[in-house]
């Protein structure tokens, strides 16, 4: 019988890499503590919406959670850094290394103040643009209605492009695209594939322009309440699940990419290097908006990550 039972909540279906990472975490932790720590996983928003679960981790109603950065940002605004377009490298392994490197400790200061501990940042495959009009240059976004998450930085990014960002609930996006309520959206290949968005979109542009990141964090008191050796195991293991998560992530992303490419009626193109440079130039002010929203501590986080990347 386990001495400590921890509840881990997340908001993804069981075939998403988040869940596989959670399973691996539970397995390794149980193994390394001889079954003293048991992790009970609740996928699929069983325990509530992401923002609600974030609050539950703070209050100790649940022990830990893996939640999208945009929702964790309702508690720790600095986390919005992961939603800035064209900031992090397009290679996901590189991205994972940088975001979980020494800079994570700077970010964790902001978590600690809110009664939670940041364990790891699990990146998902980069996002692509999808639409019913071909998109080659930033100007192609002018006047288009693009569905985005209700995250201020993403909304601002699309405003800079001259598009009209429309926040729509993830589950309603398919219908919204089908009925033409919005013209396009952005997501990684696996989400475009799993949610069948490609059935109702003509063009997909491989832009790798931004990331969805899952934030893995834990109730602070519960972590510090553990014996020192177990605490170390939890922190270390949270990092060691990264390779498994990335492998699963890339596999499902690749599978869906192939499925989408094989689908008649969907054209997949690659964003040219010139266009990328143009996008970067136009979206540069997003960084300033981030600093305005996340304050001095946000600035510190951004500078630390930029330093890491220039190494």
């Amino acid at each position: 019988k386990a001495k400590h039972t921890f509840t881990l909540g997340h908001t993804e279906p069981t075939n998403v890499s988040t869940h596989l990472a959670a399973l691996k975490f539970a397995e390794l932790i149980s193994e390394r503590t001889n079954g003293d720590i048991e992790i009970v996983i609740h996928p699929n928003s069983e325990l509530g919406a992401a923002a609600d679960q974030a609050q539950m981790v703070q209050s100790g109603a649940i022990s830990m959670a893996m939640l999208p950065a945009g929702h964790v940002a309702t508690i720790v605004p600095e986390v919005q850094i992961f939603t800035i377009p064209f900031l992090f490298p397009g290679d996901i392994h590189e991205m994972a290394r940088i975001v979980n490197g020494p800079a994570i400790n700077v970010l964790n200061k902001d978590f600690s103040e809110k009664d939670i501990e940041l364990l790891a940042v699990l990146p998902h495959a980069p996002k692509q643009f999808t639409s019913n009009k071909p998109i080659n240059v930033p100007a192609d976004f002018k006047g288009q209605k693009i569905r985005t998450m209700a995250s201020p930085l993403i909304v601002e990014s699309y405003k800079l492009l001259g598009a009209t960002p429309v926040p729509i609930n993830y589950h309603e996006v398919y219908t919204a695209l089908q009925l033409g309520t919005v013209d396009g959206e952005e997501n990684p290949f696996w989400a475009i594939g799993e949610m069948k968005f490609y059935e109702v979109q003509k063009y997909i542009v491989e832009s790798n322009h931004a990331y969805l990141a899952t934030i893995f964090f834990m109730n602070k008191a519960m972590l510090s309440g553990l014996p020192a050796d177990y605490r170390d195991i939890v922190i270390k293991t949270a990092h060691e699940i990264l390779p498994y998560q990335l492998e699963a992530e890339l596999k499902i992303d690749k599978e869906n990419e192939e499925k989408i490419r094989a689908h008649k009626g969907t054209t997949v193109t690659v964003l040219s290097a010139d266009a990328v440079a143009e996008f970067k130039a136009i979206m540069k002010p997003v960084k300033d908006i981030y600093i305005k929203m996340a304050g001095d501590s946000g600035k510190e986080v951004l500078e630390t990550y930029e330093r890491e990347m220039s190494k």
């Binding site: 923002a51 974030a54 929702h71 309702t74 508690i75 605004p77 209700a150 995250s151 201020p152 909304v155």
Partner: peptide, 8 residues
């Protein structure tokens, strides 16, 4: 006290 805000 923990200052949670809405996303948008």
């Amino acid at each position: 006290t923990r200052g949670q805000v809405t996303p948008a």
